[in-house]
C-alpha cells in the first residue's frame, strides 16, 4: 500500500470513529454534562463537524465532566500569546526569506549550445 493510501485510510478511520463518538455524545452525553443542551436539538447538528475532527478531546472532556470537573482552571486564561506571536512571526519571516532566496528568473541568458557533434 502506498503512503498516500495509508494516510487516507487513517483519515477515514479517524472520521468513522468521530462519527461513532458524535452519535454517542449527541444522543446521550451532551444532556448529561451540559444543562443548557437539554431540550435543545437543532444546534447539535452544528457540532457534528467538530466532533468528527477533535473526538479524542471530546472524549477526554466528557470523562472529566462525568468525574466532576475542577472549577478553578476554567478561569485561568492561557497566557502564551506572546510566545505564540513570536513563534508565528519567526515562521512567517523564515517562509518569506526562504521564498525570496528560491525565486528564479527564466534563464533567458542561457542559449542552447551544441557541445559535441552527432555520432561523437
Amino acid at each position: 500500500m502506498s503512503t498516500a493510501a495509508a494516510i487516507l485510510d487513517l483519515a477515514r478511520a479517524w472520521l468513522w470513529i468521530g462519527a461513532a463518538v458524535a452519535a454517542l455524545f449527541l444522543s446521550i452525553g451532551i444532556g448529561r454534562i451540559d444543562p443548557d443542551a437539554r431540550g435543545a436539538f437543532v444546534f447539535r447538528v452544528l457540532l457534528v463537524p467538530g466532533l468528527l475532527l477533535i473526538w479524542p478531546l471530546v472524549l477526554w472532556r466528557w470523562w472529566r465532566l462525568e468525574k466532576g470537573d475542577r472549577w478553578l482552571p476554567r478561569y485561568r486564561p492561557p497566557s502564551a500569546h506572546a510566545s505564540a506571536a513570536a513563534a508565528m512571526s519567526a515562521l512567517i519571516m523564515a517562509a518569506l526569506v526562504l521564498s525570496y532566496g528560491a525565486r528564479q528568473d527564466w534563464p533567458d541568458n542561457i542559449a542552447p549550445r551544441r557541445i559535441t557533434e552527432a555520432g561523437s
Binding site: A37, L47, P49, R74, Y75
Partner: peptide, 25 residues
C-alpha cells in the same frame, strides 16, 4: 467547527483558546 458557544463551555475557555491558538501556526 468548534466556534459554537457550546464548545467554549464544554472544553472550558482556556482549553478552547489553547485549541484556537492553532490560528498562529
Amino acid at each position: 467547527a468548534t466556534s459554537h458557544d457550546f464548545w467554549m463551555k464544554f472544553l472550558t475557555p482556556p482549553v478552547w483558546k489553547g485549541l484556537h491558538y492553532l490560528i498562529y501556526p
